[in-house]
């Protein structure tokens, strides 16, 4: 039986989004400021765990219908593929490059690095790993 935890729910509604937004910021800003795929992934996982704690396993599974275990191979695959991708340009495994793109709408002049794709793999793996471990142990009878 769940007690009436109105305050928790209300604050969670607010904080979860702030956390998610912050984690995305950490992930994107990683190349130039503290952050990156690892921390961003952990932060995202923390936000989702908070939602689980507040709303319970059933409700969150309905809202986010993702099997987090599935994220692990997807993340690893992305990371490996970015490495293999450098073969296409005749470069050694995991060579990274970057460039400036000025014609992107809204954002204007942006520097994009292939390292970001690799970091995306790290991000997804970390989210998958953390949530798999915590949910598996928490749901254990």
């Amino acid at each position: 039986m769940r007690t009436n935890d109105l305050i928790l729910r209300t604050t969670t509604n607010l904080i979860a989004f702030i956390l998610l937004a912050f984690s995305v910021y950490l992930f994107l800003a990683g190349h130039n400021a503290p952050g990156g795929g690892f921390i961003g992934g952990l932060m995202t996982a923390a936000a989702i765990v908070l939602m689980y704690m507040t709303y319970g396993f059933e409700s969150v599974s309905k809202i986010i219908p993702i099997n987090f275990r599935f994220l692990i191979p997807v993340g690893l695959l992305i990371a490996v593929l970015t490495g293999i991708g450098s073969f296409l340009f005749g470069a050694p495994f995991l060579s990274q490059t970057f460039g400036h793109f000025s014609e992107i709408p809204i954002l204007g002049d942006v520097e994009l690095a292939t390292a970001m794709l690799f970091d995306l793999g790290v991000y997804l793996t970390v989210v998958g790993v953390t949530l798999t471990i915590i949910l598996t142990i928490a749901n254990d009878q």
């Binding site: 995991l94 793996t125 953390t130």
Partner: peptide
């Protein structure tokens, strides 16, 4: 590396192979 965060550039660019296997370790642990 195209980044000002040296730590992150080392992790994903200069020595990305370490990171690749570290996330593989995490995946195995999970």
């Amino acid at each position: 590396g195209g980044g000002k965060n040296v730590v992150n550039v080392i992790l994903v660019d200069m020595r990305g192979l370490d990171t690749l296997f570290e996330i593989a370790v995490l995946a195995l642990a999970a």
